[in-house]
Design a protein around this nucleic acid. Sequence first.
DNA 1: GCCCCTCTGAATTTATGATTTCAGCATTGA
DNA 2: TCAATGCTGAAATCATAAATTCAGAGGGGC
Lengths: 278, 278
Amino acid sequence: MEGKSVAGRIHDAIHRLTSAEKRAARGLLGSYPTLGLAPVAEFAQQAGASSATVLRFVSQLGYKSYPDFQRALREELEERSKSPLQRSSASGGRARADEHFLDRFVTQAVDNLRGSAALIPASEFEAVCTRLAENRGACYLAGGRFTDFLAGYMEAHLRLVRPGVRRLDGRPATRADQLIDVRPGDLAVVFDVRRYDPSLVEVATDLAARRAQIVLITDEWMSPVSRFARFVLPCRTEIGRTWDANGSLFTLVEAVIARTTELSWPTASKRMGSIEKG
Amino acid sequence: MEGKSVAGRIHDAIHRLTSAEKRAARGLLGSYPTLGLAPVAEFAQQAGASSATVLRFVSQLGYKSYPDFQRALREELEERSKSPLQRSSASGGRARADEHFLDRFVTQAVDNLRGSAALIPASEFEAVCTRLAENRGACYLAGGRFTDFLAGYMEAHLRLVRPGVRRLDGRPATRADQLIDVRPGDLAVVFDVRRYDPSLVEVATDLAARRAQIVLITDEWMSPVSRFARFVLPCRTEIGRTWDANGSLFTLVEAVIARTTELSWPTASKRMGSIEKG
DNA sequence: GCCCCTCTGAATTTATGATTTCAGCATTGA
DNA sequence: TCAATGCTGAAATCATAAATTCAGAGGGGC
């Protein structure tokens, strides 16, 4: 009972509903699930029944109150948007099973990429790149178990573009030494995806205490570091397998690097030229 | 103003939101639109802010009340489910020039990803993963200046899946030591993109002399290492800027890891379990 | 390092929406 | 046709969620 979808419950219950209640059921199925998310009065009106009837209908489905019923609808909606299956029907005639693993994986990765672009406000992205291009103060980078390589990749590129780039390694023993020079207004880019690394929260706490501005690059579930972050760039990573996919973070990093380079081109090009020679 | 999507309004408004309000904005974008359909108190709690802040946030978006805001969300949801599924994201098919840097970059990255999938024969991909999953002999990883981080990322994951994973670092001084144990039939994954790293050719030569099987992950212009490689997985990287984009390589790595994990699941799951505990 | 101003969330008030009640009406069967 | 049954929705009540207020915290600027 508990675990059934609302639509499923309607189907089960429809035969013992009274006629006005059926009107409510049809109304809901007709614009599912939106109508159920509206206030009772609106639901009633749209479905051509009274509020009282709608309430009786809901209680027939086994929900102990209208808000309870709405919560179920919301959870269903959330569930649906998380599962990657949703757009299999419609336009694409081809069978999924036909595609090769790599194709399916790439399709997922593309979705994650697009989803990430939608999740990140342009202004936030721009603000981060501008701040990176300013060359004010130092810029620290830190990552977790797997994301450390992202931090490394970013560091390697950023070094070419601006001075003062440092990487914080993960060893607690050396942390104090590394953080001692952090000054107010310095920038810190922190990577953290689930399962979130507790030590990064400590690092972030420390950085925040020293008044560094934190840029957090994380997944859609949002690392706890976000509490301390000045800027947050969340990416979609879910792919429904053993591991999440960090490809979208990687591409975000490349985008940040590219944009930062663009913004600081006069400085950066000179710098890169001289590194090339030296 | 009236006709804008809620997400659109958030993007427009985010720069003038206070930090607690931004938390609300991110919370909503993170589970859009469900969180906004919940009562204020729940929204607030999930987003890590107070109800008052959520209300202020909503009013910043230009809605005159919370119910008004919820109505907008419901209408959007209704709209979405009515129009054909593949509507171009949010604001419709506006001109390229209008799009922000990140959107354009992501579009490029998506092209590269698709291009890579087309460039790599399914059989080649599958053969590599199968070979990795076999757990025969050791598996060495090596990369160049920037791709070294890809090697590191792959190593970190591969270690969880199979034994005998080693990373070759770039220092010529230690190379001989590292290669001394390579035996015929061992596997070596080499990353190389332009401008190709001469030292990788040397490493590859050496590996080939010791009869290791080389898997080369490279770009569309094909590293010279390909001469020695048993398997080649080329990716599209061109993006028409200062740097090429290696996002497609990264996603390829993730795909290889995922597929390899899948193929060696009985072994891998046990191994991962015991690492988890230990 | 200090002060000022803005932001924040707990507490309170107000408003709105959910629930219940009940009189009347429709339906069904004798 | 008439009674009995029980469905229905208008209106009253009750509960809960939204809006407002304000004291205190925190951040930014000088």
